[in-house]
Computed example of a mutant assay.
Amino acid sequence: MGEYLKALSSYERSLEIRKIALPSNHPDLATSYNNIAMMYDKMGEYSKALSSYERSLEIGRIALPSNHPNLATSYSNIGIVYDNMGEYSKALSSYERSLEIRKKALPPNHPDLATSYNNIGRVYSRMGEYSKALSSYERSLEIWNIALPPNHPDLATSYNNIGTVYDNMGQYSKALSSYERSLEIWKIALPPNHPKLTASYNNIGTVYSHMGEYSKALSSYERSLEIDKIVLPPNHPNLATSYNNIAMVYDDMGEYSKALSLYERSLKIWKIALPPNHPNLATSYNNIAMVYDNMGEYSKALSSYERSLEIDKIVLPPNHPDLATSYDKIGMVYDNMGEYSKALSSHERSLEIRKIALPQNHRDLAISYKNIASVYSHMGEYSKALSSF
Results as ranks from 00 to 15, higher is better:
residue 153 P to R: 11
residue 212 G to C: 15
residue 283 T to G: 13
residue 297 E to T: 02
residue 325 T to G: 07
residue 204 I to S: 00
residue 198 T to H: 12
residue 203 N to M: 09
residue 377 S to E: 15
residue 254 G to M: 04
residue 175 A to L: 06
residue 253 M to K: 14
residue 61 R to M: 07
residue 217 A to P: 13
residue 281 L to G: 14
residue 93 S to K: 01
residue 77 N to P: 09
residue 94 S to G: 04
residue 96 E to L: 09
residue 123 V to D: 03
residue 274 L to S: 14
residue 243 Y to M: 02
residue 72 A to E: 14
residue 225 L to R: 06
residue 160 N to I: 10
residue 241 T to I: 06
residue 7 A to P: 10
residue 268 K to N: 00
residue 248 M to Y: 13
residue 229 K to V: 10
residue 13 R to N: 14
residue 170 G to H: 13
residue 324 A to R: 13
residue 278 H to F: 05
residue 165 V to I: 05
residue 72 A to C: 14
residue 294 N to H: 14
residue 250 Y to R: 03
residue 304 S to C: 04
residue 162 I to T: 08
residue 306 E to M: 01
residue 262 L to S: 08
residue 304 S to Y: 10
residue 233 P to I: 10
residue 42 K to P: 08
residue 131 S to I: 06
residue 26 H to E: 05
residue 144 W to C: 08
residue 197 L to P: 07
residue 54 E to C: 00
residue 56 S to G: 02
residue 379 M to K: 15
residue 197 L to T: 04
residue 325 T to W: 11
residue 46 Y to R: 01
residue 265 R to D: 01
residue 116 S to H: 14
residue 86 G to V: 01
residue 237 P to C: 05
residue 266 S to H: 01
residue 322 D to K: 15
residue 340 Y to I: 08
residue 380 G to P: 06
residue 251 D to P: 09
residue 195 P to Y: 05
residue 69 P to W: 09
residue 72 A to N: 14
residue 259 A to P: 11
residue 104 K to M: 15
residue 250 Y to G: 01
residue 237 P to M: 04
residue 221 Y to I: 09
residue 176 L to A: 07
residue 283 T to A: 15
residue 167 D to K: 03
residue 257 S to V: 05
residue 149 P to M: 12
residue 348 E to P: 04
residue 182 S to N: 00
residue 135 S to P: 04
residue 155 L to Q: 10
residue 29 L to E: 06
residue 386 L to G: 10
residue 122 R to N: 15
residue 368 S to M: 07
residue 368 S to F: 05
residue 228 D to C: 15
residue 366 A to G: 08
residue 225 L to G: 03
residue 63 A to G: 02
residue 267 L to M: 13
residue 339 E to L: 07
residue 62 I to A: 06
residue 378 H to Y: 10
residue 366 A to N: 07
residue 65 P to I: 02
residue 210 H to V: 04
residue 102 R to L: 06
residue 16 E to W: 00
residue 298 Y to D: 14
residue 224 S to P: 11
residue 230 I to M: 02
residue 60 G to H: 12
residue 152 H to I: 02
residue 266 S to T: 02
residue 223 R to A: 10
residue 245 N to H: 12
residue 126 R to V: 05
residue 129 E to S: 05
residue 266 S to L: 02
residue 374 S to Y: 12
residue 135 S to F: 01
residue 42 K to R: 14
residue 307 R to S: 04
residue 284 S to L: 08
residue 350 S to L: 09
residue 147 A to R: 07
residue 102 R to H: 10
residue 268 K to V: 01
residue 360 Q to Y: 11
residue 176 L to D: 06
residue 79 G to E: 00
residue 347 H to I: 13
residue 105 A to D: 10
residue 178 S to Y: 04
residue 384 K to F: 07
residue 16 E to Q: 07
residue 289 A to V: 08
residue 283 T to P: 13
residue 345 S to M: 11
residue 79 G to P: 01
residue 17 I to E: 12
residue 120 I to S: 06
residue 196 K to M: 12
residue 68 H to M: 05
residue 269 I to K: 12
residue 193 N to C: 09
residue 64 L to V: 08
residue 289 A to M: 08
residue 111 P to Q: 01
residue 322 D to P: 11
